[in-house]
Nucleic acid binder design. Structure first.
Lengths: 160, 160
DNA sequence: GACCCGGTACTCGGATATAATATGTCCGAGTCTGTACGG
DNA sequence: CCGTACAGACTCGGACATATTATATCCGAGTACCGGGTC
């Protein structure tokens, strides 16, 4: 079990978009070159974000993507679920129903205890992701990256 | 991202094995028929458990598997990691190193903040799984399943 | 000089191939059990 | 009657196909910019 690399790309792209001046777009091409990933494939991740209404795209020259909401209102979970899907990591196939001793018309009152535990673990994972917004990520990045590198990077990004 | 169905099977099989009398084995064949899953493929999951030293197998007639440790000392995490692998769900490919503005010899002091958040979420997931043992699962199952069905099931299992 | 219009180049979006992984199947090496035989 | 040797059947363990998913790529529809032409 492993998250797609698109998730990583989407998170990095959103981090950049969240620090962008208003009414400014970044194109797939620029984002792909900046991160050193295939442009065509990265576009699929951005499409997923677009369909989830996390970013919005514009056509034509100087077009691209920008955030559709304020960075305070976008969480890691939003991005991960947009790219990876909203389904739970553990799906219960109800194999307990195949128990040959069970009556055919027996109806389970509660969810399978195993599925319950796995589901709670899944919720713990999601809760953590829901607790970190893009705004918070921006603060951490600013504390982590040297100011001059940050400045040069945005210079590089916005000059194309 | 989705856990393999083998994880579910392994958990159900371990639940049964944990309620077994000492020095009693259950064969792949019986476990597969009980759960209604392909015998040959289930055996792969049990092999993983065996390699992780969670269960131990015996050959010949009346052979099969039994737990290698007490149910109190086996957690959900042990089983999930044995089948699914110990690797984290999010792998950081360090795409920040591809930043064209970065000096080539620049050395990152800390882990990428994005990877940190994802890693902490992963740890939250693992912590929850580590907190539930097979013994605890056994108690919940006993509370969830009617006593007569439980008894008939073990009758069915041990009579083969 | 200001406005309008059309061409062009650039954008996103979805449809299409390839690689990796999960799923499912098969067969061989080894061992326990049950039986037949001999003492 | 008891111990022993043996044949058989059953077990696990790993090697081999197939289906599904992730990865990577391509091409078409649509739109904003830019230049020229007109009023």
């Amino acid at each position: 079990m492993q998250l797609k690399s698109q998730v990583e790309w989407a998170l990095h792209c959103c981090a950049l978009l969240s620090a962008l001046p208003p009414n400014r777009y970044l194109s797939t091409k620029v984002l792909a070159e900046f991160h050193g990933v295939p442009k065509e494939y990265l576009s699929k991740a951005l499409q997923s974000l677009s369909q989830a209404a996390l970013v919005e795209g514009t056509l034509g020259p100087s077009g691209g993507y920008r955030l559709a909401r304020a960075p305070e209102n976008i969480t890691f979970l939003d991005i991960v679920e947009a790219v990876e899907g909203r389904g739970p990591s553990f799906v219960c196939n109800e194999i307990r129903k195949n128990n040959p001793c069970r009556a055919a018309d027996y109806c389970e009152a509660r969810a399978c205890p195993i599925a319950q535990v796995m589901g709670q673990a899944d919720q713990a994972w999601r809760s953590h992701l829901r607790g970190v917004t893009l705004a918070e990520l921006g603060r951490r990045l600013q504390a982590d990256i040297p100011a001059d590198l940050l400045e040069r990077s945005f210079e590089w990004l916005t000059s194309r």
